[in-house]
Design a protein around this nucleic acid. Structure first.
Ligand SMILES: [Mn+2]
Ligand SMILES: [Mn+2]
Ligand SMILES: [Zn+2]
Ligand SMILES: [Zn+2]
Lengths: 136, 136
DNA sequence: TAATGTTTGCAATCGAGTTGCGCTAATACC
DNA sequence: GGTATTAGCGCAACTCGATTGCAAACATTA
């Protein structure tokens, strides 16, 4: 497991107080976090600072974002070695009962045969249903 | 190709003026439409009426919605025989250049082996990149 | 140190989505 | 047909996540 400092160094993002604490928070979660989740957890850090930090992180591939249909974009730390390329894409699971969103990093996306002349760059793959805790 | 009246009858949705014109518009498009797209196209129909129409259509599986990450939910008419079940799920393509979102109905989603005890109900699968027209 | 660039906090704004409400049209009931 | 009830519609207001302008604080460079 890499520390916040190591990750930021590898991804060439300058370390600051806000960046460290946001990244630390993201690393400590099992579920993907919304801006509001982070804002609530970091009571003394301003929302717009967190917002801009998330943008910076995403641009530099420290994290990736997930549109799970809940109305709030979620964020999760990229796995070690991830470069947000097609080979790094994975499914996400959104539990319609507990509203948690997870990265299914062990479930790589199969090769998608797009129509002639289409070019794949990114993907937002969200599978919805019940997570193991809610599926009783 | 089914007419608006036929589709609404099959899906047991009462026909009204707004519903007919919204469905007709959706049927005539090659790309999935946002609420704003429809509002712009139907200049004399109120936004909230279109909004509620879309909700009704979605609840009754006349259309399905797509979260393509553009910030606006897109809507597309379900294929004939579609019941919005896992077997009916398909990929969507969002062109990052021209911002068009398409249903790739001929590209069914492969079986997804979720972790133990997870239950799949729905999915929002969006592949992003360049469409054939923009990939020169 | 002074100049320059970057990050942060605060407040304001944006905009897609949603809702309350009164009016009208459609349907059900007598 | 006539009246009560329900459903759909249009307008305006509102919600709330996301985004931005700006000035102060901080870091880097010359
Ligand atoms: Mn992920
Ligand atoms: Mn579709
Ligand atoms: Zn759950
Ligand atoms: Zn395109």
């Amino acid at each position: 497991m890499q520390t916040e400092e190591e990750i930021l160094k590898i991804k060439k993002v300058k370390n600051t107080a806000v960046r460290t604490v946001v990244l630390r928070h993201l690393l400590a979660q099992e579920k993907a976090q919304s801006l509001k989740d982070i804002e609530n957890a970091l009571a003394y850090t301003d929302r717009s600072s967190i917002f801009r930090t998330l943008k910076t992180f995403e641009e530099n591939k420290v994290i990736h974002s997930i549109e799970d249909g809940s109305g709030m974009t979620k964020y999760a730390v990229c796995a070690e070695g991830c470069n947000c390329e097609p080979k790094d894409l994975h499914y996400h699971f959104y539990c319609t009962n507990c509203s948690k969103t997870f990265c299914l990093v062990d479930l790589p996306i199969p090769h998608i045969k797009l129509p002639e002349n289409f070019k794949l760059h990114q993907a937002n793959m969200v599978v919805k249903g019940l997570c193991d805790k809610c599926n009783k």
